[in-house]
């Protein structure tokens, strides 16, 4: 049986939903209505568009709440939802909705933004394609990891659980299949949202080379 890992990559088309919010109540209404692809877009866009910049802020909702509405506590509360431990987009949506509902029901600040600074809901259509990188052994896999487009890392790390309902990221699944459960566990345990994308690439390479024994998180 072939052990080949074929690297895929992805690119996104951004679509406008024609919906906007100017305060926490309208944001809540929007969150209840938007498609899953919109939840995914607003929680991963920043990461993918700023892939060498410091990992904060993690998502559009938190950024808008904090920087435009000036609601730092609510912003922090949205930021602190640990996406790495969330199993589906719907679970993520439920968590955000609950935070917003709690804020609104507490009677805290719910006034709106100034005109022109509304939150615009968008989503994405994702195009997935094969790259010409493949690996049959751990050595080939590690070598490929240095060369694949950064979007390939995004596809194999972020998409599998949230959009394909897999139990973990594609790299860990393959590493288990070739008999490297320890490496698989270590990649699976990482919080990819705490890295820049280039930082994430470096971290994965270090794990694969077993070069990361002094790092804190593994």
């Amino acid at each position: 049986m072939s052990n080949e890992f074929r690297f895929f990559s992805e690119t996104h088309q951004t679509r406008l939903l024609g919906m906007k919010a100017k305060d926490p109540i309208q944001l809540l209404e929007g969150l209840r209505k938007i498609p899953e692809s919109s939840m995914y877009y607003h929680t991963h866009r920043f990461l993918q568009q700023h892939y060498r910049i410091s990992p904060e802020p993690p998502n559009d909702f938190a950024y808008w709440i904090t920087n435009i509405l000036g609601l730092r506590e609510l912003g922090e509360s949205i930021t602190s939802v640990d996406i790495v431990n969330i199993k589906s987009i719907e679970e993520l949506r439920t968590r955000y909705i609950k935070k917003l509902e709690d804020h609104i029901l507490s009677g805290k600040h719910i006034s709106g933004c100034i005109e022109g600074h509304e939150f615009h809901f968008m989503d994405c259509k994702t195009f997935v394609f094969q790259t010409d990188f493949a690996a049959n052994t751990l050595a080939e896999f590690t070598e490929a990891m240095e060369k694949i487009p950064i979007t390939s890392i995004c596809f194999h790390i972020f998409e599998p659980r949230l959009r394909y309902q897999k139990r973990e990221n594609d790299f860990s699944i393959w590493l288990r299949d070739i008999g490297e459960p320890e490496l698989a566990d270590r990649i699976s345990r990482m919080d990819p949202y705490a890295f820049t994308l280039e930082g994430l690439r470096k971290k994965i390479i270090k794990i694969l080379r077993r070069d990361d024994c002094f790092d804190n998180e593994n």
């Binding site: 690119t11 996104h12 088309q13 498609p35 899953e36 692809s37 989503d123 994405c124 259509k125 994702t126 195009f127 997935v128 394609f129 094969q130 790259t131 010409d132 959009r163």
Partner: peptide
């Protein structure tokens, strides 16, 4: 340019995730 190419392709593909299945 990429956005324009995706726009043209999107006219022929429905759904949120499109698998283009081809090698570069």
């Amino acid at each position: 340019i990429k956005d324009y190419l995706l726009l043209f392709l999107s006219l022929y593909h429905g759904g949120d995730i499109i698998e283009l299945n081809s090698c570069i």
